[in-house]
């Protein structure tokens, strides 16, 4: 599904990714761990097509070269990024944002726009699965939401848009244990043999709930080590110090 070869990324004359390789197949869950500043968010941004990076290397997503696509085209093709810091958009009703977004993705796929009533039914159902109070949906997007509420809102959007590849950038940071469980359940209930996850995290505790097929350690803009689920437990004991 996703194939990254020799990816380099620079911003403001600073090399951040230095020849990164990664392959993700449908149905797989990959976790990326690594110290602060190692380039995890940069990888997520580059994959989603954020402006401002100078990049080299190949990123293929289901046979399409991602370098040719804009951010919205990538999103429409099924790449979803749950932001480490979700943005607040004052004055924009959450429901309206979600519906506009869903319709943009549907339109790109050649599907009919969803009408308001059907949408409201759908979103209510998805929100209740995540224990999100309906009242949140009529508030301004992320404005005044707590950290945990913002993160849940990201997972809600993931479940609504049904992406093929979901990138979760530190979605677990700042969550209490109940919220963590809800987020993990949200991911697990969406996971199937056709979609894949790239989960960026610092903590083994999320991986207790979402079992990864692979764990990669990012260091100096490269994948320094790859292992199975057991690597997470090992890292928790030893830290990143001996990996480079």
């Amino acid at each position: 599904m996703l194939s990254i070869q020799n990816l380099e990324a620079r911003i403001d004359n600073k090399n951040i990714l230095n020849g990164l390789n990664l392959n993700i197949n449908p149905g797989e869950v990959h976790a990326i761990m690594g110290p602060n500043g190692s380039g995890k968010s940069t990888l997520a941004n580059v994959l989603s097509g954020k402006n401002g990076y100078e990049t080299k290397g190949l990123i293929k997503f289901n046979e399409t070269d991602l370098n040719d696509l804009s951010t919205e085209e990538r999103a429409q093709k099924g790449i979803f990024l749950a932001f480490q810091y979700p943005l607040e958009i004052p004055g924009v009703n959450t429901n309206i944002f979600l519906r506009t977004s869903l319709n943009a993705v549907r339109k790109a796929k050649g599907e009919k726009e969803i009408d308001t009533l059907t949408f409201l039914k759908l979103i209510k159902e998805k929100a209740s699965e995540l224990g999100i109070d309906e009242k949140f949906l009529s508030r301004q997007l992320n404005v005044g939401f707590s950290g945990g509420e913002k993160k849940k809102n990201e997972i809600l959007q993931m479940k609504l848009l049904q992406p093929k590849l979901s990138i979760l950038d530190e979605t677990d940071s700042g969550l209490d244990i109940d919220a963590l469980r809800i987020v993990a359940d949200g991911v697990n209930s969406y996971k199937n043999k056709d979609n894949a996850f790239l989960i960026i995290t610092h903590y083994q505790r999320l991986l207790d709930y979402i079992k990864p097929d692979f764990i990669h350690v990012l260091s100096n803009g490269k994948i320094a080590k790859t292992g199975g689920a057991e690597l997470g437990i090992e890292l928790e004991k030893t830290g990143y110090a001996n990996i480079s």
Binding site: E72, A75, L81, F83, L87, S101, A104
Partner: peptide, 8 residues
């Protein structure tokens, strides 16, 4: 960017 990432 956030909106673009959501397909807009």
């Amino acid at each position: 960017y956030y909106c673009n990432q959501r397909g807009l």
